[in-house]
Design a protein around this nucleic acid. Structure first.
Ligand SMILES: [Mn+2]
Ligand SMILES: [Mn+2]
Ligand SMILES: [Zn+2]
Ligand SMILES: [Zn+2]
Lengths: 129, 129
DNA sequence: CGCCTTAACGCTAATAATTATCAATTTAAT
DNA sequence: ATTAAATTGATAATTATTAGCGTTAAGGCG
């Protein structure tokens, strides 16, 4: 466990946002000013392979990272790209139903809801009114 | 509706696979030998915005495209990256449950199952035996 | 504590999917 | 047939991510 790796993991664990590599890089430089972006990517991959974080790819051209490696669901705003946790329990029966279709083995599933975050929803309401 | 756009849409609608832009490009060249890759990307974006196809980003570094724009679920093989349809009905109650969490407006959701496709599952069985 | 092996670092250049540009061509409405 | 607008193919640009490499620092052991 190097200093760089620990700082990156701490940053990810201490935010509820789901930041990009570049945002993590900016934050990390506040602690280790000469850390390199390559090191950020390298450690994000290492941490993902170790099961300590999640990498999220939801349509945008870059990955977002999540300090909570437990399976949980997300809401993605189509307006501002904000990703938020959806605090509902994991629906295990979905995997049961999918297995019944005989499409091979299933290890886990991902569920994302797309729409408008509360802030963008309000903004749109004002425009329509 | 140009010739190029029609060929691209036909290719997508006539396959059950979920091909990449590059595979579509290869197929399209069998019909229009001097079609360009830029035209393929341009029309895929146009078709997606028109709601005629789906773009799928499941972790891999490139997009897959789906000629069926109706919401449906997928199985992604962690071994060979094959994407297959999961023929189970869309679970509308998931959106009800998510709305109850108050995370903003929800227009649609996506659900993917990750594991091994039947072929890779068999391959792994043979190794273990 | 000091040595030593090895993994990780910072830097820079490379990769590769996708998008932007633009003159030339095609579409389709008049 | 004319013509204006939209789309094409070719090429260059963009950009997130990875690879290569000489240098540095973890952390195990004497
Ligand atoms: Mn999350
Ligand atoms: Mn499909
Ligand atoms: Zn928003
Ligand atoms: Zn497979």
């Amino acid at each position: 466990m190097t200093r760089q790796k620990k700082v990156i993991l701490d940053i990810l664990r201490s935010t509820k946002s789901h930041p990009t590599a570049d945002w993590i890089y900016t934050e990390a430089r506040k602690v280790i000013p000469d850390i390199s972006l390559g090191t950020v990517y390298r450690n994000l991959n290492v941490l993902r392979e170790a099961g300590e974080i999640l990498e999220l790819n939801y349509g945008s051209s870059y990955s977002h990272y999540d300090g909570n490696p437990e399976n949980h669901y997300h809401h993605v705003c189509l307006e501002c790209d904000r990703i938020a946790d959806v605090p509902m329990p994991v629906q295990a029966e979905l995997e049961q139903k999918a297995r019944a279709c005989g499409c091979g083995e299933i290890y886990y599933h991902r569920l994302e809801f797309y729409g408008l975050c509360p802030a963008c929803q309000q903004k749109k309401d004002k425009q329509t009114r």
